[in-house]
Design a protein around this nucleic acid. Sequence first.
DNA 1: GCTAAATGCAACAGATGTGTCGCAGATGTT
DNA 2: AACATCTGCGACACATCTGTTGCATTTAGC
Lengths: 189, 189
Amino acid sequence: MVTQGRPLRADAERSVRAILEAAERVLAANPAASLEQIAEAAGVARTTVHRRFANRQALVDTLVTTVMDQLDAVIAAANPDTAPPLVALHQVTASVLRLKLGWPFAMTESFAPESKWAERQHRTATRCVTLLARAQSTGHIAPDADLDWTCKVYYALIGEAAHNTTEPDPDLLATKVINTLLHGAGPRP
Amino acid sequence: MVTQGRPLRADAERSVRAILEAAERVLAANPAASLEQIAEAAGVARTTVHRRFANRQALVDTLVTTVMDQLDAVIAAANPDTAPPLVALHQVTASVLRLKLGWPFAMTESFAPESKWAERQHRTATRCVTLLARAQSTGHIAPDADLDWTCKVYYALIGEAAHNTTEPDPDLLATKVINTLLHGAGPRP
DNA sequence: GCTAAATGCAACAGATGTGTCGCAGATGTT
DNA sequence: AACATCTGCGACACATCTGTTGCATTTAGC
């Protein structure tokens, strides 16, 4: 019923975590899953879910917000404005892939257009374009490249890479993503 | 109630078409839309929808099957096994983009993994890889390229390009997709 | 124009999901 | 040990969607 009041008791806090983790798992497999299914996966009663989250929406909001906070943190940690562009790009990519592998539902949801996260997502996209512009200024991206398109392609590549089941190492996946982003599949002359 | 019996009367056939087109529009905007909303968009009563399609699933099936048939036809028309690889690739890309712009829901649905369309979609993907292999043999794709990955990237690029609202010309979009697929965003040496 | 088919409308039954409530018992905190 | 909190359980109300049926009316096809 309530989302925030006064500090929760230890077991209640544990329930909240269990619910969030179960929600991530269940919703990743089926975004239309019922709260009943989520509760079952979390090992709690459905009423407990309602006690900890006012709405289904509130639950999803918490999930997405948590992940977006982590996303911001992870991006900031790569120093995208000061580090060498390719280094930052690689580090961001690997971190985002790690995040996406652990929180597939929340990450997908947060990137959905037309959602309440649109503005925040747009801010992130702007930072991405800024980083790409730096890579452009160092000659790693063509001077005439369409950076908005490149950013979209970058996102799509990350999305595809995250679906890859054969290669679980985020760093190798990041290398593959960036290689593809910069050079495509054509032969290197 | 019934899906196929004996030839439909002219007005009934018109209803079926109206329902399918409305379903495409409505479901593209909201995949969880109710049959009521679809009926309203089609300008018919909800019961008429049930008369023409046994299930919601049957309606979606018809939508997806229709589009997949068109997809097969469009691919075949590009002669992917005989035409010069890059020519076929461009033609297929432009046609698929056209299809995707007109049937965004059905196309997305048909590409969903783990669905009942998986086998058919897999067959299409195999043809895609075959075409890419031909492009590889002509030197347009690097000899050591991972063609499965390249195919996924190709799909993702088409998906992104279809979201592009500023450039509605499928041929120009196809050129952009293929350029990106082959050369990425890096500078041409 | 006659007949069969198709439609809209209203009503119904059933399923599912959501959110609330009260209470008895377990669990943590002090 | 005492107290407040948390939980599971059962029950309820409510909304929404799906699928069906019957009937009066319209429409297509011959």
